[in-house]
């Protein structure tokens, strides 16, 4: 195993997560604002996540060819659900009283979204990003099959040449990566909730 493999795995996940946020959060906002597209958006992201990862990657590969972009797009589509769903839920669950008072004070819809609703929904959106990240670390293993590199290729090679040590070391690094991401992000998440949640007093 090389550091290179770890880094490329990490790169795949990071790129996918960044894209997921860039695309998923606006989709969640759209679903919140427009009732007409809400069902469609939420349904599509759910269907995407239900698709077998390798099947999804295979289909993308037909259009994009083998390589990292295929993997990143696959991971992105696969990760949309938690981010879109949590953005939508986070925004719609902002206390109606707060929405009303913001409106009554003369905030425009966008100002309200940006200065009130998004900050309040932020912890829940972050939870969505955490789930997407941890899932992506595992799913990125499939990259090996469509020429995307990463730790999957190590494990895959280990299986082909019957090298137990290779499989286990790859798996171990993968688990550390997943648990590490989860741990760090859970910690940040807890601090966010403490800070923003009106229910829990914030003391420092």
């Amino acid at each position: 195993m090389t550091l290179n493999m770890v880094m490329s795995h990490f790169y795949l996940v990071a790129a996918a997560v960044v894209l997921t946020i860039v695309i998923g959060v606006p989709l969640g906002i759209l679903a919140y604002f427009y009732k007409s597209v809400r069902k469609i958006i939420l349904w599509i992201v759910e269907v995407l996540q239900t698709m077998p990862a390798l099947a999804l990657l295979g289909i993308i590969m037909v259009f994009m060819g083998a390589g990292k972009p295929t993997v990143i797009i696959g991971l992105l589509l696969y990760s949309l659900l938690p981010v879109v769903q949590n953005t939508y839920i986070g925004l719609s669950e902002v206390d109606p009283a707060i929405k009303e008072v913001a409106q009554g004070m003369g905030m425009t819809k966008l100002y309200r979204l940006w200065h009130v609703e998004m900050p309040i929904a932020f912890p829940l959106i972050f939870t969505g990003v955490r789930i997407a990240t941890v899932t992506s670390v595992g799913t990125a293993v499939f990259a090996a099959f469509v020429g995307g590199g990463g730790l999957g290729s190590l494990i895959y090679r280990g299986i082909r040449i019957s090298n137990m040590a290779m499989i286990l070391s790859g798996t171990f690094v993968l688990m550390v990566m997943a648990v590490g991401c989860d741990g760090i992000m859970s910690y940040i998440e807890k601090r966010l909730y403490r800070r923003f949640s009106p229910a829990k007093p914030y003391n420092e």
Binding site: V141, Y156, I159, M164, I167, T171
Partner: peptide
């Protein structure tokens, strides 16, 4: 967090 592929491989 262990991917399914590992179980199959082992």
């Amino acid at each position: 967090t262990i991917p399914g592929i590992v179980f199959i491989g082992l």
